[in-house]
Design a protein around this nucleic acid. Structure first.
Length: 783
DNA sequence: CCATCCACGTTTTTT
DNA sequence: ACGTGGATGG
């Protein structure tokens, strides 16, 4: 049968497992996604399982998207009915239906970590806890840990009384949870916890989903925590058709509660589980794999396995050490330029992986000067930017008036002359009358001592009410545009006129275009739906396929991805492995770092370069580091250290920064031999102009040379995009053609109009009626 | 009520 | 080095 072709023996065995628990230990690059998707197809075609009864669950939207696509390709028409989603979005969808049974409103909002911190600050203020002495972060991580272990505030109070500090945490936890509920809000951890709570307290809801999801597959099982385990166990407990895929060597999320025991003990929990190991790697060369094996070998308490490949040895792993981080970045940028110039690879084949987000800056600078197209994944999330959060707070307020945090955020943004004193009075009133902040605003004139501010508060309330009344017949986009207009938010920024304000306006425009994409692609667009969708996206999810640009990201973000050319940078003890894991008395901290290194190495397909710097600025302090112990773990015969032996440091004094100290090192022995001389080269990559879409804010107002470069680069990126769209004639279809849309199916193009950046296409679909959409997003296919 | 200045601290990693 | 958040002065 066709599904089984192109699979090896173990893969086939896994795919053709029908009922009962199954554990697939899938080494890096061993084709686990393939196995999962093929198994889904096999169940549907061979065993005639109803796609409706199959669930595949992942951690990231990106993984879910990939799986969705591949399932759709493999399993035919009915594949769309397979449930493919992340843990969090699955829980949200379940909760949207049934959360009222555990005392929340259906249109609850989801708090991100920023919101959590704001709320925690409020909690501490009310409990009169000095946040200088006890940080919000401390409480939040304690609470998160408790939630991941499914310890309720009440349990916490009971069991943790022995420790002095825990008594306080228990109080904070209880109050935090109370206020969340008061705001009709859930934090990330709650999404899982509340779903499990729902299942436990409402057996018929659980029964419904058990019946619905008769076949469950979990990806990246090594990263599940206790709640997730519970969630999956509850769902699977009836039919026991649970298939988990994972690699204990790639467990890298202990810090957020991942319990490696879930995968290590799977066979104890499910004694009848079938276990299959996938050890043949299809991704990397033997040298890269050997390096990875050598590094991970030092960990104890793992299911030992050794990856092998028939790919051949390939080239050795490059290792280069430099005097400082500037030279390191310059080397990487030079190496990328050279490889692309020689035609060895494209920009998009290269990835730079680092331990901490802060390391991205230097590379960004060097890539900018070298005209290398790049994209940084992670860092400051688009949706975390101030102007975006402000506007979203308006949307949330319109959607859910109980979300005090959102209301308080915008009550005086833009400035309405409502000050802290007034806000405090409203707050007190709301508290003493057990009403939401917004309801207190509506009753402003009852509030004692509020004086002349009443009229200001009233006009705010009127504004929100007007927006609410429009919500019914407005699309999300129209609503947002209305808000940006009515509140004078954009106007205020325009008047400011600074670079920074312009970037913010651009960001807002980007947000508006995202709402319009949402309006066009969502099955049932709604305000709550939009807010929900963006609450659950991480930056990695926006990395588009097929862009020809170097990707920069943390090692964590890189999990699940692969690249022909990988640069692992900052290979220094104290940075990677991180300082705290080196000094920790818990040896498993270091093991987690080692797994992270293993993940990094195994991302590489053809060529891996590791680099490190002797000196590096960290938080304004220059530190001197040793070569990472992980590099030392790799035997010499697998390494190439460049043409060592002669010549001084190539980059002495070339970076302008670092001054005296750097020069003092200049007299030292040479590091960084074989570094490529830096040559700027003509910009040649295709761009899709996302730098124009995702502008990054710069802290200072005066334009530094660096920033000017950036501006120039961005302008160019933008132009290139316009050029491309027009030149290529852009569209493969014209008015009157029949086209296919991923979601809407077949339709006839009625009209094509040229918008600013893109073509706006009007299509009449057979089943969905007339839709307007942007060509670049709609990806219409001519039939 | 708002703008400006100063002091402080800073979890590696993210749904 | 950097941003945040608090205090202070207009």
């Amino acid at each position: 049968m066709a599904i089984l072709e192109s699979l090896n023996k173990e893969q086939k065995e896994a795919v053709c497992h029908y009922e009962g628990p199954l554990l697939i230990l899938a080494g890096a690059g061993s084709g686990k996604t393939r196995v999962l998707t093929h198994r889904i197809a096999w169940l549907i075609e061979e065993k005639e399982v109803n796609p409706w009864n199959i669930m595949a669950i992942t951690f990231t939207n990106k993984a879910a998207g990939e799986m969705r696509e591949r399932v759709d390709q493999l399993a035919g028409d009915e594949a769309g009915r397979v449930w493919v989603a992340t843990f969090h979005s699955t829980c949200v969808r379940i909760l949207r239906g049934f959360i009222e049974m555990i005392g929340y409103g259906k249109n609850f909002t989801i708090y991100d970590s920023d919101d959590q911190k704001t709320l925690m600050k409020e909690v501490c203020r009310q409990l009169q806890i000095d946040t200088k002495k006890y940080r919000e972060r401390m409480f939040l991580s304690a609470i998160s840990a408790a939630k991941n272990e499914m310890i309720s505030p009440a349990d916490f109070q009971k069991q943790e009384r022995d420790l002095f500090q825990n008594e306080m945490i228990a109080r904070v936890y209880a109050e935090y949870q109370k206020q969340l509920a008061g705001n009709n809000a859930l934090d990330f951890d709650d999404l899982l916890c509340k779903t499990v709570e729902l299942f436990r307290s409402c057996p018929d809801v659980l029964a419904y989903y058990q019946e619905r999801f008769r076949f469950i597959m979990v990806d990246e099982y090594q990263d599940t925590n206790k709640v997730q385990f519970e969630f999956v166990s509850l769902l699977a407990s009836k039919y026991r058709n649970l298939c988990v895929v994972g690699d204990d060597d790639q467990s890298i999320y202990k810090f957020r509660g991942a319990n490696i025991g879930n995968i290590l003990n799977f066979e104890q929990v499910f004694p009848d589980a079938k276990v299959i190991r996938l050890e043949q790697n299809y991704r990397s060369t033997q040298n890269i794999l050997s390096a990875a094996n050598e590094v991970i070998r030092h960990n104890k308490g793992r299911k030992s396995k050794t990856l092998w490949t028939s790919n051949g040895d390939g080239c050795k792993v490059d290792f280069r050490e430099f005097l400082n981080a500037q030279e390191e970045a310059e080397y990487v940028s030079g190496a990328v330029s050279q490889m692309v110039r020689q035609g060895d690879c494209r920009y998009g084949d290269c990835a730079v992986l680092y331990r901490t987000n802060a390391q991205s800056r230097l590379f960004e600078e060097k890539f900018l000067t070298a005209n290398i197209p790049y994209r940084i994944i992670g860092g400051v999330n688009f949706y975390a930017r101030r102007e975006i959060k402000d506007l979203l707070a308006y949307l949330k307020t319109v959607d859910n008036g109980m979300d005090d945090l959102a209301v308080r955020r915008i009550i005086n943004v833009p400035k309405r002359g409502i000050g802290a004193a007034t806000i405090a009075k409203v707050q007190d009133y709301a508290l003493s009358h057990a009403m939401s902040f917004y309801d207190a605003l509506r009753a402003a004139k009852e509030i004692p001592g509020i004086g002349r501010s009443v009229s200001k508060l009233n006009s705010f309330v009127t504004l929100i009410q007007t927006l609410r009344s429009k919500q019914e017949f407005y699309s999300v986009k129209e609503l947002l545009e209305d808000i940006a207009e009515q509140t004078g938010y954009i106007k205020e920024l325009e008047e400011e006129g600074t670079e920074e304000a312009k970037e913010r306006i651009e960001n807002i425009n980007e947000l508006i275009s995202r709402t319009s994409v949402y309006d066009e692609t969502a099955e049932e667009p709604s305000l709550s739906g939009f807010l929900e969708e963006i609450a659950l996206v991480a930056d990695i999810d926006s990395a588009r396929e097929g862009e020809d640009r170097v990707l920069l990201m943390t090692l964590h973000s890189a999990k699940g991805l692969e690249f022909p050319q990988v640069f692992m940078v900052g290979m220094e003890d104290g940075l990677f492995p991180g300082y705290s894991s080196v000094v920790s008395d818990d040896p498993t901290d270091l093991e987690e770092e080692r797994r992270l290194c293993y993940v990094g190495i195994t991302r590489a397909m053809k060529h891996l370069t590791m680099t490190g710097a002797r000196m590096r600025m960290i938080r304004g302090e220059t530190q001197i580091h040793m070569i990472s112990r992980f590099v030392q773990d790799i035997p010499e015969e697998l390494l190439s250290r460049g043409d060592s032996g002669e010549g001084g440091p190539l980059y002495r004094g070339s970076t302008g920064k670092g001054g005296a100290k750097e020069r003092a090192w200049g007299g030292e022995r040479a590091y960084g031999n074989g570094a490529l001389p830096h040559e700027g080269h003509a910009y040649g990559g295709q761009m899709s102009g996302d730098d124009a879409l995702f502008p990054r804010r710069s802290p200072d107002h005066q334009t530094s040379a660096y920033q000017q470069k950036r501006e120039a680069f961005r302008a160019r990126a933008y132009n290139t995009q316009q050029f491309e769209v027009k030149k290529s004639d852009g569209l493969s279809y014209k008015e009157g053609d029949t086209v296919r849309h991923v979601k809407f199916g077949v339709g006839i193009v009625q009209k094509i109009t040229e918008g600013g950046r893109d073509y706006e296409v009007t299509v009449e679909f057979e089943r969905f009626g007339v839709k307007k959409m942007f060509a670049a997003f709609a990806k219409l296919q001519k039939l």
